[in-house]
Design a protein around this nucleic acid. Structure first.
Lengths: 340, 340
DNA sequence: TTGTAGGCGTTATCAA
DNA sequence: TTGATAACGCCTACAA
């Protein structure tokens, strides 16, 4: 077992000084062609690689990006990570991923852990609990220390930083408009409780679409699911006995539970009821009927977030740039859960 | 914007030496109660946190684990990561995740990047391309440098290291046995090409189950999918016109494509054909009919891998321990794609 | 052309 | 009880 080679060892081996080795390896003109070759050959032979940690300490840069997401077992976040990885790796950055599991405490702990030198900046989608509590001290602290922070998807308006979002409201509006276009009259909304920012925005899009088409909003047709773990139950109860010909659900699971509930009641999708979901996951593609859905282009969001962050990181010396908010367009993907 | 506080700054501020500060903060008895309190109060007030990078350099430990997986957009790997995160975080380790995207080159680059000081050890599921090429120099090198490596799921027999696997063969055998138990006579296998280790093993399980029940193996009933991206096509063609009453597919996608193909041919699942998949993903749960499948217990695998790795890391000083291979049991989850 | 010295932030050892 | 020094691995300004 040969331990990692260091400059010092090379220097001793070749009987030169450490700085000579360092310079030679960086192709400094200060060093004679001769020794330079000798040193480089030796380094190559023994596969010398500089130690990242030492470099980080010296440069005060770690070249890594910290990503904190609420949950990974969720196709959307998975695609976002792919997007981040892509551009980060291309630009020479590592990616550290931590999960908050939607817990405020875990989010804080993870951020503090990473903020102590492990990363140069953060990409974050805020935990549900954090949104609920409205306690953002950890975010402010990180920003205050001069670490760039990019928020995506679940963002916090009050915090000033770069953001990558989709226009949830417009996405939802288009989804509902689609239902209206195919002649749905009684359109139900299955959404989350309001403190989840995206749920709230999508709910708003639903409202806007109805108002825009002079349809009245019937609160009986709106379900705000309290508990994700029992959403299937809640949805089944909500739907039973209601006269509905269209459903807009704010995620794919809700959409599928709705379809299942309809099936149980002898209703056919899309012949009797049309259903639109949100998030273009594997489920939406493979379910029968496949789901018409609002695609959030997660990889694109991740890529944009990474670009934004790296831009801030590499601009560090320069002038203060204003914060940006990038809105990634959604697109409605029509499949078989809605009539034509 | 206040930059991060360092020992040096505290020392200057309080007019003591750096080492006094260091000791005080670590509650050394060397320091008088008085100054200790003073220093700790100050540190707390300004929220001092030691710099991880400096600690890493000093201790030659990063307290982070590098995880390299072929693809994250895959429910199984996602659950494994959850498992790793859980135990790693609990024991004070960070987790860096990189994706190889099943590319040999990316796997090598990621490993080299992380091996240069960024991580203390690796948890890895090998890229498809790596298995195909049989080039493992990067793995050997890492091991050679004394960095512990734990492989999971897609492992390489020739490499000596800790491993966490499921018994793919037994899992497959049980799946096929289940089909036999419910009186299937013509059982097809939809698997991958042989260089994917898990595909090969599951194929073997299929063989064993048939042999064990004195059924003959009919190569016409075996499909080795070449190209994942066109698997749906391949499967449809393969299945058409064949007299089949049971299918064992080595992943959930293949299983679903099979079901879809049967539907197109007017066959009902499970009444006319029973289908068993592998991997208990979201698709298996939500698809209609829901899939009978072999669950791999990904989170459990991840947790075991992390435990194994941390054990090696923390035993560093001690005696050489032999390598372990942990076999996580699979379990057959019966749902609606197979008759009772 | 090469080497020395200092520093990044921390801790351990030894001296005062 | 406190402080100075060296070290982790690397880089760079400056001296030789």
């Amino acid at each position: 077992m040969k331990k990692k080679l260091t400059l010092k060892q090379i220097a001793k081996e070749l009987d030169v000084s450490v700085s000579t080795v360092s310079k030679a390896l960086r192709d400094s003109v200060e060093i004679s062609e001769d020794t330079r070759q000798k040193i480089k050959a030796f380094a190559k032979l023994y596969n010398y690689k500089p130690n990242n940690i030492a470099l980080s300490l010296k440069n005060k840069k770690t070249k890594t990006i910290g990503v904190i997401i609420p949950e990974i077992v969720h196709h959307f976040f998975t695609t976002v990570i792919s997007g981040i990885e892509q551009v980060a790796n291309k630009r020479g950055y590592n990616v550290i991923i931590c999960m908050s599991n939607n817990s405020f405490d875990k989010e804080v702990i993870n951020m503090e852990m990473l903020a102590n030198g492990s990363t140069d900046g953060f990409i974050l989608s805020v935990a549900k609990e954090t949104q609920q509590r409205g306690d953002y001290h950890h975010l402010l602290e990180v920003i205050n220390q001069g670490m760039p922070l990019v928020m995506f998807d679940r963002v916090i308006d009050e915090i000033e930083c770069d953001k990558v979002i989709i226009d949830d409201t417009i996405g939802a509006r288009e989804a509902v408009q689609h239902l209206i276009d195919i002649k749905c009259k009684n359109i139900a909304l299955i959404t989350t409780v309001d403190y989840v920012s995206v749920g709230k925005l999508r709910t708003q899009g639903y409202h806007e679409a109805l108002v825009h088409n002079n349809m009245k909003i019937n609160d009986d047709l709106i379900l705000k699911v309290e508990d994700f773990d029992h959403s299937e139950e809640e949805i089944r109860k909500f739907l039973s006995g209601k006269d509905i010909d269209g459903v807009f659900a704010v995620n794919e699971h809700f959409a599928i539970y709705a379809i299942k509930a309809f099936h149980e009641n002898g209703l056919r999708v899309p012949q009797d009821v049309s259903v639109v979901g949100f998030t273009n996951g594997e489920l939406s593609k493979q379910f029968i009927p496949s789901l018409t859905t609002v695609s959030q282009h997660g990889a694109e969001m991740g890529a944009q977030a990474a670009r934004l962050l790296i831009k801030k990181l590499e601009n560090d010396e320069g002038e203060e740039e204003p914060y940006e908010t990038i809105i990634v367009e959604t697109s409605l993907i029509e499949r078989n859960s809605t009539k034509r």
